[in-house]
């Protein structure tokens, strides 16, 4: 057995600049998807609790479709379907084009999970809060925005943290959408140096550096923002 290869961390050190830029790509896509999925997820949740039936049905259809479709399929459709077949190009530069297609695919997918968490959060807000909001003359949208959603968000910050951690790890799938990030580099390094334990550990630790603080941050925020009843 070749113990040298198993314990040799030099490939990581030799490629430190590539490692940094690959993880930077992971961070960029994670942050963009995080923001977009929160926005889309909030809109979908608003649709699901709206008094208009068509919106409720559309919202439920969205969540059930996206939540039950493998992410790989969504991303392949975005890269091959939208970009190659339908010629839907966000930018002429391939790297920018694939970045936004990957962001789009991951955001619509993650939004379904954000929406489910938020809907659970809305269920924790007592009926009386909505009644009081309506009683002072707030419209449906106003009471959702100013009274219901802020409380719903606060009660699901910790579960949203889990959604975000899953999302960060899911960015490794975007290599099927031709966006180059940490997992793509790991695959290339495996091909170049062989699939060694040190390379694997290096990348696993790299991801933990992103996900562990995310978890701590959301847990801290959940405690800080908790609504006392």
């Amino acid at each position: 057995m070749n113990w040298n290869v198993l314990l040799d961390f030099s490939p990581l050190a030799d490629n430190s600049d590539k490692l940094l830029s690959a993880f930077w790509a992971t961070i960029r896509i994670s942050v963009t998807v995080g923001i977009l999925s929160l926005v889309i997820g909030t809109l979908i949740t608003a649709m699901r609790v709206s008094p208009i039936r068509v919106l409720r049905v559309a919202g439920a259809f969205y969540v059930n479709t996206l939540r039950n479709t493998p992410l790989t399929l969504v991303l392949l459709f975005c890269s091959l379907g939208l970009s190659d077949t339908l010629k839907f190009r966000i930018s002429g530069t391939p790297s920018i084009n694939f970045f936004w297609l990957a962001v789009f695919g991951m955001s619509v997918y993650t939004a379904a999970f954000v929406a489910e968490s938020l809907r659970a959060g809305i269920n924790t807000v007592p009926m009386g809060q909505a009644e009081a909001a309506r009683a002072i003359g707030l419209t449906f949208t106003q009471s959702l925005r100013m009274v219901i959603m802020p409380q719903a968000f606060r009660s699901v910050i910790a579960p949203l943290g889990s959604v975000m951690i899953a999302m960060i790890k899911n960015t490794t799938v975007v290599l099927v959408a031709s966006y180059y990030e940490a997992a793509s580099l790991m695959k290339d390094m495996f091909e170049q140096y062989g699939a060694t334990l040190p390379i694997f550990i290096g990348f696993a630790v790299g991801f933990m550096c992103l996900t562990l603080p995310t978890g701590f941050f959301f847990n801290w925020l959940a405690k800080r923002m908790a609504v006392v009843r």
Binding site: P126, G128, A135, V228
Partner: peptide, 10 residues
């Protein structure tokens, strides 16, 4: 004015 006050908790 409600029985359970219903002040906005946040």
């Amino acid at each position: 004015v409600f029985q359970s006050f219903n002040l906005f908790a946040h």
